[in-house]
Nucleic acid binder design. Structure first.
Lengths: 203, 203
DNA sequence: AGAATAATAGACCAATGAGTTCACAAAAAA
DNA sequence: TTTTTTGTGAACTCATTGGTCTATTATTCT
């Protein structure tokens, strides 16, 4: 897969890049997501991105910075998915249901990296660099905030306590990630979702 | 901390051990719990256990086997705690509340290893040895089963669907682990617990 | 065409870590 | 006291890894 060339931005002098910058982030994220931080070597990353080792260092700095970029990218992708859901859903219930089911689908689909990068690295944060800790804080705060955004969709603000409910739903998603990695089936996850949704008012 | 000698079992010939076997398991568990698998070196383990490197290899086999033993030990400790709760609690609601609060306390206490060994390694299971995968399966199955045991305490079996509720509560605990590692306060966890308990019938 | 630039490929380095080996130490048994 | 057994402690091997450096290649600008 070293044929990523979709973003052929005109660059100045010098040998042309072997990679498209946008796709490097995806590949980086994918690889850390799949293997975790420690088990991802620089060789893995150069292979996945197609970029030369030296290029990665020039672009990002060091391995920590690569992970930081991946975490931020991962979080940003979720942001845009939430944007779409907020725009399309009519009620908070609907928005939440859609999001939870999308997560469950992905968690139990064999393809794509398993689990969740944010969750995985969060449980692995001890002993990591401060920069990684900060990126995790950003990602986790964003996630919680995104749950609040979903709950704010077309809903009477008096009908539910948004922050508390968002916290609860964050717990549910986090929990489902581990559940799925522990072998739970899609049906199991659906049962959890059903119970969770009962805690989000109808309108 | 190489003065663990509380279990001075009479041993046969040979130089006496530098460690008490029971405490080795605790130290092992503690260390993996604190640092994760990859970030725990054999030097860390010999230092934590007080046992010589060669002794650990003789007793367990290799690093994977050490983690397997730690996972099993970790799960077994939870078993005995659940035993106690089942014996002392009068209702399922009470048993669950007690367990969730104990988890929340531990998760937000600064002391002791943070998070949860089972959850941490579960999210890190990809690329690990089959033996570790099997140990994780045991631990996760046991956990779910323990939730069912707690729900069975003095409760009308018709009042709730035990397997589904146990699955839900497992999700809650798993989720709280990540929440706590992401920086949630004890109060945040209490809010989650309150919501979760609303899904366990009164009697 | 030739200079300047930017990226590649891969060698190189120092550190770390898992696993093994072995001489030595300390106890029980004979 | 001597032998046997069991564990210690430290050195050693070998593979891997993060990070750096250099020669080379490919492109644009003059």
């Amino acid at each position: 897969m070293s044929s990523q060339k979709s973003e052929d931005v005109k660059r100045g002098r010098g040998r042309p890049r072997n990679f498209a910058e946008a796709e490097v982030l995806d590949a980086l994220t994918d690889t850390f997501w799949r293997n975790g931080y420690a088990a991802t070597s620089l060789d893995d990353l150069t292979q996945a991105t197609g970029a030369a080792r030296a290029s990665l260092y020039k672009l990002f700095g060091d391995k920590d910075a690569l992970l930081v970029a991946a975490i931020d990218h991962y979080a940003a992708r979720f942001d845009t998915r939430v944007d779409a859901t907020c725009a399309s859903a009519g009620t908070a219930r609907e928005a939440i249901a859609q999001t939870l089911r999308a997560s469950a689908d992905r968690l139990s689909a064999g393809q794509a990296p398993p689990g969740c990068l944010r969750c995985r690295i969060t449980l692995d944060r001890h002993g990591q660099s401060p920069a990684i800790g900060a990126a995790l804080d950003r990602a986790n705060d964003k996630f919680r905030h995104n749950m609040e955004r979903l709950l704010a969709v077309g809903t009477d603000p008096a009908a539910l306590h948004i922050p508390k409910t968002a916290l609860f739903l964050t717990t549910i998603v986090n929990g489902m990630v581990i559940l799925a990695e522990a072998g739970a089936s899609r049906d199991d996850l659906e049962d959890v979702i059903t119970t969770a949704l009962a805690n989000v008012p109808e309108t």
